[in-house]
């Protein structure tokens, strides 16, 4: 294992410190609870919190900032954040308008967020609502979930709901909007190479040199099918066929397209996937309103990508285009 690390057990702590150091104007950090929060003052808005195991960066600590999330709870690598951190983050960031938890559908994450909201209610804390994101079309149940997993489509939920929250919208309407985005987004990915957990030091699963895993999970858990490597055209077509038929996305629909790198794939290859996706969507009569190509939701250094499609309406389009002042911008 060759990585830019000191002690494997300090992986998350040092990464988050680096994040806070990079944006001292907007990012606050509580190391002992692994909480990243918005430091710039804001009032009269519902606070949005997300959280999960680390290793999916920039998801989700790097999406904290005006127009997106207000706090993020990071767990250890691939392990859920703890109840105490979630409770503390909610108490810290609430501005009297309530707190909305945006949670990807993994058993550990759900358990801790559900208990946190119960504890806050028991102790008379801020109003809390929770939305579960489950955009992955690959498998219904996996090693880490009951029901569909939450993957890169979550970023569209954070973006759209985050922009809306800046307008002072109340918690019930934001929850409704979050559910509406979740209902209109679908994702599927594939892996070319496994990832290496920094504390484990060895690949989390084995994939032969000529094999790919279709529908791989964010923690390297098995997907839909393991097949021999093939031309990118064929594989991207498989992903999009599964995605398009699932919603289903019909001819004439207008979408946002996300080509998401899983962490270890060069940007150049992601743009090849983007080119293929555009051709396939055009052939299906689906219009692309905006394309997002980058590492948005990763699995450490896993090679591969996922494709997400979000079926748009005028409100989603307007909110997608609003600015978000988050640390992962190039300029």
């Amino acid at each position: 294992m060759k990585k830019i690390i000191n002690n494997p057990e300090d992986f998350v702590k040092e990464m988050l410190k680096g994040l806070a150091d990079s944006r001292p104007d907007t990012i606050g950090y509580i190391p002992e609870k692994r909480i990243i929060y918005r430091k710039d003052p804001f009032t009269n808005k519902v606070a949005l919190i997300s959280g999960s195991g680390s290793g999916h960066e920039p998801d989700q600590a790097f999406y904290v900032g005006k127009g997106m999330l207000d706090a993020a709870c990071a767990g250890p690598v691939f392990a859920a954040p703890t109840l105490d951190a979630i409770v503390d983050a909610a108490r810290l960031i609430d501005k009297g308008r309530g707190v909305l938890f945006l949670v990807k559908n993994y058993t550990g994450d759900r358990a801790n967020f559900e208990m946190a909201s119960e504890m806050i209610e028991f102790e008379g804390g801020p109003v809390v609502e929770t939305i579960i994101i489950n955009d992955d079309v690959a498998v219904k149940d996996s090693t880490f979930t009951a029901g569909r997993r939450g993957v890169a489509g979550a970023i569209f939920v954070y973006k759209i709901v985050g922009a809306k929250s800046e307008e002072g919208t109340n918690i019930e309407e934001l929850k409704k909007l979050a559910m509406e985005v979740n209902a209109n987004v679908r994702t599927m990915g594939y892996a070319l190479k496994s990832c290496t957990h920094p504390e484990k030091g060895t690949p989390t699963f084995e994939l032969g040199p000529d094999e790919i895993e279709l529908g791989v999970g964010l923690h390297g858990e098995p997907g839909r099918q393991r097949i021999k490597i093939e031309r990118a055209n064929v594989t991207i077509n498989r992903l999009l066929e599964s995605i398009i038929s699932d919603l289903p996305f019909k001819s004439g629909y207008e979408v946002a397209l996300m080509v998401n790198g899983l962490g270890g794939t060069p940007i150049s290859e992601l743009y090849i996937a983007c080119s293929i996706a555009h051709d396939i969507l055009k052939a299906n009569g689906i219009k692309v309103f905006k394309t997002y190509v980058n590492n948005y939701c990763t699995s450490l250094d896993m090679e591969g990508c996922s494709i997400s499609l979000l079926n748009l309406n005028e409100e989603f389009k307007r909110l997608l285009l609003m600015p978000a002042d988050i640390p992962v911008r190039y300029f």
Binding site: A79, L83, D84
Partner: peptide, 25 residues
Amino acid sequence: LKKTGFTLAYTIGGTSGAMLGTGFI
């Protein structure tokens, strides 16, 4: 019982905290 469970889950953390806490809650 609920307060005991929340205290355990809050202080122990992790999965063991969540499961023991859930039991009492």
